[in-house]
Nucleic acid binder design. Structure first.
Lengths: 184, 184
DNA sequence: AAGACTTGCAACATGGATGACGCAACTCGG
DNA sequence: CCGAGTTGCGTCATCCATGTTGCAAGTCTT
């Protein structure tokens, strides 16, 4: 049956994400076991291990792009867009952290999406700086890297729902954790 | 000759760090090649792959602990200690990023050192909060995680020397990248 | 109930990585 | 110059993950 097969594929993809995020060197056997299917079934659905990982990356990348797009960073003030994008991306990253960490893929289309999103992120930070949300003296490339690192960390720790995490994340990104008088 | 053997061991350890940081699944063959020795020599010095990795972790962990201790976080004001520890740790992390990322080791002594350093980090942040360097409303566990994430990111990007990186890192950690009026 | 589709299972082939030897050659200190 | 120590090279055994195939059994559609 058609929907059965698709459900199996989904189960395998999700199991692979679960297993590989804990141990990137896990065997197909372990992935199959986590998915509740035989190893041969995995090989029937995915010609090779690489094909499986590529499928995971493709799936996660589509979700990633959709998460960013759904926040409409174009037609929203920078600060609001930052919140929305962060919350949406966190929702995806929590479930697909392993697949999303493979930005440089053999699939050129995936790499293109990632660099497109990265470019949009750069624009967002530039707009934020222009709008006076980000300080003028800040290196935007460094700011973006910090932003990525915070998203990664937040997705790992998973305290509260995505919106609460996004709030805290953006707060930390913009204000830091120190007092005003703390630094010279 | 004795010093010859020790030099070989060092070369292998450094090569392993270099290779494994790029590809954690690299073979002993690739490590040996990067070290400029034959694969059999690696096996002569390290009984197994696990033994090699353990040796790397042990070596890096000792450096790590020494880096923290050298900053004297006990007898220094929190803010200064934060700078010193950051700069010292960055110097180690740049060269031993792979080995340092393996905090949970089979060797209990390594795990003990890591948790001891983590505990000292917690104390440092608590002192910083008490001293008014860190805001009172900040979750210190989150602050510490952010700090770790920033160190990881800084070690990856490697812009400038360790002192400059530490300065920017601590600045970002405490002030963030936003303006004062930016948030509500 | 018949047929198409999918799965589990067992078996097999293959390749790559790991680890263990022995031997010849080389480099030191003595 | 001699001997201990070390290394490179070739070889061999072994293990494990990967990938393939055939067959029986199950499920769902019609």
């Amino acid at each position: 049956m058609r929907s059965d097969a698709e459900r199996t594929v989904r189960a395998i993809l999700e199991a692979a994400e679960r297993v590989l995020s804990r141990n990137p060197a896990a065997s197909m056997e372990q992935i199959a076991e986590a998915a509740g299917v035989a190893r041969t079934t995995v090989h029937r659905r995915f010609a090779s291990r690489e094909a499986l990982v590529d499928a995971m990356i493709g799936w996660a990348t589509r979700r990633f792009a959709a998460a960013v797009e759904a926040a409409h960073p174009e037609s929203t003030p920078p600060l609001v867009a930052l919140y929305q994008v962060t919350a949406n991306v966190l929702r995806v990253k929590i479930d697909w952290g392993f697949a999303m960490s493979r930005a440089l893929s053999s699939d050129p289309e995936v790499a293109a999406v990632h660099s497109a999103v990265e470019e949009r992120c750069r624009r967002l930070f530039l707009e934020a700086q222009t709008a006076g949300v980000v300080r003028a003296d800040v290196d935007l490339e460094w700011a973006r890297r910090v932003y990525y690192a915070l998203i990664h960390e937040a997705a790992q720790s998973q305290n509260g729902d995505a919106d609460a995490m996004a709030t805290r994340l953006v707060d930390t990104l913009l204000r830091g954790v120190g007092t005003e008088k703390g630094l010279g």
